[in-house]
Design a protein around this nucleic acid. Structure first.
Lengths: 211, 211
DNA sequence: CATCTAAACATAGCACGGCTATGTTATGTA
DNA sequence: TACATAACATAGCCGTGCTATGTTTAGATG
């Protein structure tokens, strides 16, 4: 009788509000439960089910949000004429993000790593790949290492260091090993040692108060 | 009247049984809850409280167990005349352990990293420190890097790589970057490039079917 | 060996967690 | 304006960790 009839649309603002509140509760170390999350908002517990399908979906969306924020932070790194400096700066930004939001960082790598949009993780890696690609074109790396490989290796080093510090047993000064590790990696990939040290030194400014 | 009286002692076998069952449930992906853990055993839920003080204490003990197993695996690495080979072999064993028991590995680095005995984590690190120390004495490394620093750096690299593979988004073949990363690190610390490559190649045999 | 103490142990029930069933309301098309 | 549909509110279910309480048992003492 009314064939093309379409019902009430869900309000995207509710979804955003819930994710932002969850991120804030994570930051302030409040336990995030179905009821505590909706408490203080104008919506009921059912909102979590209509917008996320349950708490699992909410955590998934929160992981997604973490990658989005990381991507935004990496985007703030302005490319220069020195790709090695840039790649270092990207890694430093990665560390800064993890240190500023350790709980969110941990959530990002939780539970089977299922994201709503797996592309989001690839997109952040792409920042590193791009810098590596420019480094390869600039002749700073040997051709037998692909940009993706170098980006992945840089990521592994950064993740290992920062996760052991931000959510692990190592003390914060351990981060000072970052430049040495990156220099070791870049040099092993073909960059000139002295030039590499310079580039890494210039790029290594982990801004720990941005967001 | 009976001043020095001592009451019934708790049975250590119960504690061991519960931890082993928890480890097994972790391996078989069964959800570990207070009730599901004691189900199938002859003990009641109260046993978790007398032996661990609650589920938190049980997880803590399980983390401890993880480090104990890791230590046992590292102990299987027999030292040779080549300390760089040995350090590489230790890292390979570390990776093998994490890949064999990814869930236990994740638990080990969960939640504020509080262990029953913080020494256990240091003890496993000590294996790496010892190898690094022997490497320094053999003149393979410069004196401006302490054995603890080199061990920590090796750990960070290994942890970053294996956690992104075992419980993260990277595919398993990514582990093949291990030798390159270690060679880069050891070379940057002063080892001769060719000799280092040899040592790493000899040490890199991640036995993934032990335990 | 009998006795008494204290802790291990079992049982029952609490508060809170995620989730679902069901009723109500708002939205947008016809 | 009428109606179909899905967003939304409410209430209650089951499973969770935990605690209160009663019972049992190991073991030192005399």
């Amino acid at each position: 009788m009314y064939p093309g009839v379409v019902a009430r649309r869900r309000d995207p603002a509710v979804r955003t509000q819930l994710i932002e509140r969850a991120a804030h509760m994570l930051r302030t170390r409040e336990p995030i439960t179905l009821r505590s999350l909706v408490a203080g908002t104008s919506v009921s517990t059912m909102a979590i089910y209509t917008h996320f399908g349950g708490m699992d979906g909410m955590w998934k969306a929160l992981r997604q949000e973490g990658f989005t924020r990381l991507g935004a932070r990496l985007a703030q790194v302005t490319p220069s004429a020195d790709p090695v400096r840039d790649l270092t700066a990207l890694i430093a930004a990665y560390l800064g993000n993890a240190l500023d939001h350790p709980d969110l960082y941990r959530v990002m790598f939780d539970a089977n790593f299922d994201l709503e949009d797996a592309q989001a993780a690839d997109d952040t890696l792409e920042y590193l790949v791009q810098a590596a690609e420019r480094g390869r074109r600039a002749g700073r790396y040997r051709a037998d290492t692909t940009p993706l490989e170098l980006a992945t290796q840089s990521w592994a080093v950064a993740h290992g260091l920062v996760s052991l510090v931000a959510t692990g047993p190592l003390p914060r000064p351990t981060l000072a090993h970052g430049p040495l590790l990156l220099t070791a990696l870049f040099t092993a990939t073909g960059d000139d040692p002295n030039r590499c040290r310079q580039s890494v030194k210039q790029g290594w400014q982990p801004d720990l108060t941005s967001d």
